[in-house]
Nucleic acid binder design. Sequence first.
DNA 1: GGGGAGTGTGAGAGCGCTCTCTGGAAGAGT
DNA 2: ACTCTTCCAGAGAGCGCTCTCACACTCCCC
Lengths: 331, 331
Amino acid sequence: MRTRPTLEKVAARAGVSRATASRVVNGSTRVAPQIRDAVNRAVEELGYVPNQAARSLVTQRADSIALVFPEPATRVFSDDPTFAGIIRGVSLEIEEADKQLVLMLIGATGGYQRAERYATNGHVDGVVIASMHGTDPLPAILARRGVPVVCSGRPTVPSSLPYVDVDNAGGAERAVRHLMERGRRRIATIAGPQDMIAGIDRLDGYRAVLRDSDRRSIVAVGDFTRESGTTAMRQLLADDPEIDAVFVANDLMALGALTALRQAGRRVPDDVALVGFDDIPAVSYAEPPLTTVRQPTVEMGRRLARMVLDLEEKAQVTLPTELVVRESTAS
Amino acid sequence: MRTRPTLEKVAARAGVSRATASRVVNGSTRVAPQIRDAVNRAVEELGYVPNQAARSLVTQRADSIALVFPEPATRVFSDDPTFAGIIRGVSLEIEEADKQLVLMLIGATGGYQRAERYATNGHVDGVVIASMHGTDPLPAILARRGVPVVCSGRPTVPSSLPYVDVDNAGGAERAVRHLMERGRRRIATIAGPQDMIAGIDRLDGYRAVLRDSDRRSIVAVGDFTRESGTTAMRQLLADDPEIDAVFVANDLMALGALTALRQAGRRVPDDVALVGFDDIPAVSYAEPPLTTVRQPTVEMGRRLARMVLDLEEKAQVTLPTELVVRESTAS
DNA sequence: GGGGAGTGTGAGAGCGCTCTCTGGAAGAGT
DNA sequence: ACTCTTCCAGAGAGCGCTCTCACACTCCCC
């Protein structure tokens, strides 16, 4: 393999100086047309590609951003398309900006130090943290180190860090109200983990609506996995057999709950109505298709990327969610 | 934000030369213990982190590899955990080697040139192509440019490029033979796209077994999406209502087929037995749970990464698949 | 006790690029 | 015709690091 051509070679071939060649490559306007053409031709002929390392060294920019998935997220990763949506969104925006995406799935051992070290060594211009765990120390650490950080999901502890979240509470409220409108009396919930903002806010939304209508909450807690949905549903049925509706804090658990209901001989929606959250593809193919709350995952990814790339102001953003009504809540 | 400390500063603080500081940072043994300690202390105190760009510039290594998902793959991405498995595997191995993973989802517009340009500018040490499309020109282009490339999935056109594939044909054969052993007479298949090696090989496996037992093939073709599975299943039932078993080339289509069967009033497995391929989590929660062929996606990712990192010899590897029997093929 | 072998440290070049600064040519103004 | 401005190209420094080479020192053996 022959060595890759340098700017020097391009300049020599075009009969100009390295500085001029650099100007052309970087699209400066203040270059005479015929010289620009000559350089471009040389670039073409030699197949010149700028050395990013050399460029970064002098510009102090890396032209890439990191997308970090903390350990707890990686576990769900393979079964929850929510993360895929965020990746896609971030990727789309990054590509448009002609930058690179560095993906870090933080493993169990020493992943944090590794991510911290990496993010602070100038190899990335910013970090998007796809953490659903609000107690994650990484964002604050990086921010203190001067690395631009944007979080996916509002941190559980109030902070001034920029984030992009979805309207979890609002979505939950709409879902529960929808169940009430359909005439459901005993509305339970399967909540998500209470160390994640999505788990907390969705439970809050559920509680707020029930409180307003003077009903009591019936709560089981899962961990956003399908299995935990099944377990929680069984428990709910054991605790209160009269339940006629369940708001489940995510679709994966809702699918698990559906299994438990079927096994218990309850018909959906006839006996028990079911609402999920996320709108992953699988729920629209479930039997029956599940009503759920859609969250704009790709858009989330886009906003996260735009903020960290400074294409838009870093802020604390909450994107709207939308109730998608399907058969599982037919009256 | 104060400027990050350089090796120079560390050396000064430790009272040694830059060269010695470099030796310590890079873990050379030929340094006197007390000097090593002094340097390490200085590193600690200053919070020194090596500048990767500067390092890459001189070593000509990037310490990162790219994982490329061509356009057709990105479409399935969000609903098919197969890709997530590959990503995890690659990520695990990369992390162990203390390198970085650059993820490229190739978009519709100019993604190829972008990927090519990026991969050849010395920013990555190698490329893993998660292409299921064997006609993809990218691998050959990069290989010609001298970039280490490993493909996920055997290219459809014979080539000497290293790849990691799974035993698609063998898995399909085992699945179909399993259906025969369960006494099924009319075994159809829903094949995958015939421009992907997984689609081709799985159909070949199906055909081989039927040929050996002198039965005729009944084939419908899908594109690996759930919807196409439903459509193909309907078509199959219309063509030949006597069908009592279907081998489906992937799980997503199998789930789609299950929907079609249910809608047509066919019981699974009583009337029609169903086998999928991939073993995604969803099929074990389907009603009934589907028999399928498991492929080791995480292991695939690991092998891909190890090859491209030169931790093991680049070769053409085929990993075994395994039949997982569940209720959908009970006799 | 002198020459080699072995060991640890420093000096300095240079990776490929960007960017400031300077110089020269051309055009405009008096 | 001469100066002033404008514009564009080149020279050169230097980003932070690694690595070769040279050098100083200790140790050992004949």
